[in-house]
């Protein structure tokens, strides 16, 4: 995977989702922009709303989107995303409905959508079946927060065969050599976790983050997106200076919590405004 403009093969007969994603990063780079990748939970408060939310994120200028797949025991997530997963599961979320809504969404929006899913769910469905279902639904790939590189060979092979991205994560506790090994395996982009901890908005950027991203930049060609703890346009702007993109999770999901108390149009308008501001902040 390379972030450089893919001059070699603009579009072949069956373009892989990975190369589509690379083209998208290349186009952003040409326009002097970093990517904005919001995260939303599938099925919170219901699938109809998820579809409307994905369309509004696309309109607001999101470059790509992480669609969070609710899981009963998400150990990497803080209270905001945990509660969102709990609401979605209580509202009847299933994987069948995830793939259904993904199919509709990927037909309607321009931005690539990646599923953020616990390996527990992927393993249970069967790796090949999960990947095939995701591909059929038009998804671009996966972020699997609880799958370290040592355990990922099977899913990696299935994703490569299907042309889907398998995004890996590096964290502040990852030793340098291991970070390089992870970056080498990552396809689509590399997810640089800003803090040692669970997901959740934080007020300040962690010390050393900018340096860490700059160091990673010297080690890999794959686009680097930074996530965990970012919620304000100011933080997004600072990160966009050095990284290829910004992931905003809990701060977006917090809007979903309010969805039940507002007419849908009003809540969507609020979310869209927030995401537009973030998108504006990622212009370099």
């Amino acid at each position: 995977m390379s972030a450089s403009p893919s001059v070699a093969s603009p579009t072949v007969a069956s373009p892989s989702k990975v190369s589509e994603l690379a083209d998208r990063f290349a186009a952003l780079k040409q326009r002097g922009r970093a990517a904005l990748a919001p995260f939303v939970t599938a099925g919170d408060p219901n699938m109809e709303t998820t579809l409307a939310v994905l369309e509004s994120l696309d309109r607001a200028g999101a470059s790509l989107c992480e669609l969070g797949v609710p899981y009963s025991d998400p150990i990497a997530d803080g209270p905001v995303i945990q509660s969102s997963y709990t609401r979605a599961l209580a509202a009847g979320f299933t994987l069948e409905r995830l793939f259904e809504v993904s199919r509709l969404a990927t037909q309607r929006v321009k931005m690539p959508i990646l599923a953020m899913a616990s390996y527990s769910l992927i393993y249970r469905r069967g790796i090949d079946r999960f990947v095939a279902d995701a591909k059929a639904a038009g998804l671009t790939g996966f972020v699997v927060p609880d799958l370290p590189i040592e355990e990922s060979d099977q899913l990696d092979a299935a994703c490569r065969q299907a042309g889907l991205a398998l995004v890996r994560l590096v964290t502040p506790t990852t030793p340098p050599e291991r970070a390089e090994a992870i970056a080498r395996k990552s396809t689509g982009f590399l997810y640089c976790v800003s803090v040692a901890g669970v997901t959740g908005a934080r007020t300040d950027l962690p010390a050393g983050l900018i340096e860490r991203v700059k160091w990673l930049r010297t080690k890999t060609e794959v686009p680097i997106l930074v996530g965990f703890g970012i919620s304000s346009p100011e933080q997004a702007r600072a990160v966009a200076e050095v990284a290829d993109g910004v992931i905003v999770g809990s701060a977006v999901v917090r809007h979903l919590a309010e969805a039940a108390n507002q007419p849908r149009e009003e809540f969507i308008r609020g979310l869209e405004g927030y995401v537009s501001d973030l998108a504006a902040a990622t212009a370099r």
């Binding site: 150990i75 990497a76 390996y119 527990s120 927060p145 609880d146 799958l147 370290p148 040592e150 355990e151 890996r168 994560l169 590096v170 964290t171 502040p172 506790t173 990852t174 030793p175 291991r178 992870i182 976790v193 040692a196 901890g197």
Partner: peptide
């Protein structure tokens, strides 16, 4: 060495915990 008891076991954790 990978913590396998037959096919069971292993280490399915967020990267943050790998080093520890």
């Amino acid at each position: 060495a990978l913590g396998r008891f037959g096919r069971f076991g292993g280490r399915y954790v967020p990267e943050t915990l790998s080093a520890a």
